[in-house]
Nucleic acid binder design. Structure first.
Lengths: 203, 203
DNA sequence: GTCTATACGCCGATAGAC
DNA sequence: GTCTATCGGCGTATAGAC
């Protein structure tokens, strides 16, 4: 039983390289414009066959990415909800997270905000039915109950609030807005929050 | 020179049938999941070859759709701008148009709001650089000058305003919101307008 | 367990009969 | 000018040598 001290990567390291390369290409060119050859070349794994050591097919790469991103998001949101009880602060936490991710991991946010997941993974639950986004809706619902958020349909509040947030981030990702997400963060938070908050005293 | 009184369709009628069928399929399954065979079967034209009588290739079908939709939008927006000078009323006109289209021509709005046009037509200008959407931005800019709209970056005002509008419509199109667009129209208009309007006295 | 070679199918596109 | 037949190629996927 030799030690693994050679330059050969472990299985999980390779798998990760494939996922990272795939995410980048998917975000840049789209899933259907990306071939397995592209992914093999962009990742350390230089051959298409090697990809099949880790994934059954092309779809399962996208699937794994989707799961990983949502899992990670889920953890972050749990974390945020644990830190405070107030809906406003929880929402603020989510918004800060989204803006930070847009600057530090734009491919991840591109996957979440601009890629047509249902075309790529027709089997998968749509975003808004996933655990992570259900939790965000719960934050809004409890905000309504607590009187922090105006008494409107939580689904609509969600639509409005994240309409502003996500559209701003989408425009950053596409270059339509040309500064970093961070540059728009506080102003956009205020706009979105005041829209749904009970007392809109800021303006 | 015989008269054309037979049941055979004219060239432009056929072309239109192809476009309608393609639009429907693209909106339902996505461009890359739709084959020319699918389009041929769904349109009156029963054979793939016949499609090539009207279009050079698959892309040019999507291209023609894109152009037609944007042209039509352009005309409507010109019309709206001609009817009134006030930015608020012009924006209201655009919003009413979008909501109406979402109910009466959901495939058109799906093409505009959820399809990844740049993946399908990499050559085409992105939506926000098209004439129609430049005009919408102009409406906002003149609203700022006229003092109707708060003095913020017009691009941001645009991001916020249509963030709300488009996200709501997107949720209607995907079924995340389960009533017709019309059911949300006035409430959503108010939310979006008050967000950018100078005096937010409504709430 | 990694690469070569190759199979296989689908789809876009064309040629050519009628 | 419409359909049949078919091509060519790409991209996914696999078999098998080493």
């Amino acid at each position: 039983m030799e030690q693994e001290l050679n330059t050969t990567q472990t299985k999980s390291e390779q798998q990760n390289e494939i996922l990272v390369a795939a995410l980048k290409l998917f975000a840049e060119k789209g899933y259907f414009n990306t071939s397995l050859t592209d992914i093999a070349e962009a990742s350390g794994v230089k051959t298409v066959s090697a990809i099949y050591q880790h994934f059954n097919n092309k779809q399962s790469i996208a699937n794994k990415l989707y799961e990983n991103i949502l899992d990670s998001l889920n953890v972050s949101i749990d974390d945020i909800r644990r830190r405070t009880q107030k809906s406003s602060e929880q929402l603020r936490g989510v918004v800060d997270l989204f803006f930070k991710l847009t600057d530090t991991a734009p491919t991840v946010m591109t996957f979440l905000l601009v890629m047509p997941v249902h075309e790529i993974l027709p089997e998968q639950k749509p975003l808004f039915e996933t655990s992570a986004f259900t939790k965000i809706l719960k934050i809004i619902q409890s905000g309504v109950r607590a009187g922090e958020i105006r008494n409107i349909d939580p689904l609509l509040a969600n639509a409005y609030f994240f309409g502003i947030i996500n559209n701003t981030l989408r425009m950053v990702l596409t270059g339509e807005l040309n500064k970093s997400a961070e540059a728009y963060r506080s102003q956009t938070w205020l706009a979105a929050w005041n829209l749904v908050a009970k007392k809109s005293s800021v303006f």
